[in-house]
Amino acid sequence: MSAVLRTIWGCWAALVVLLATTTGLAFVPLGRWNIVVALAIATAKALIVVIVFMELRRSSGLVRVFAGAGFLWLLILLGLTGADYSSRHESYIPNTLQLHETPVKR
């Protein structure tokens, strides 16, 4: 009982430290690494919540697969859409996103 509570509130402390870290690092100029660090910390926090609070460490393999499936499919959406956006400028087709230099309100 108390061991479980200790784990939970230990994780809470870790989450708050990570929150402080990510907020602080946002103000440190790291160039393109700012977003990478922010997302890495977010992923770490999410993993703590999923594994400890949502008890994935005690769940069956089936539940783990289901927990991962949503994120895997989200990666498919991001990845293949990204495949288009990241290579459009190398294409002979004009980038529709950059057609208008300054967007104007109709």
Binding site: L19, T22, A26, F27, P29, L30, A38, A42, M54
Partner: peptide
Amino acid sequence: FVDIVWIFLFPLIYLPGRV
């Protein structure tokens, strides 16, 4: 889960452009 959604929304929404 609702907590996790926020964990991702926070850096995506609040943290860009702070430098």
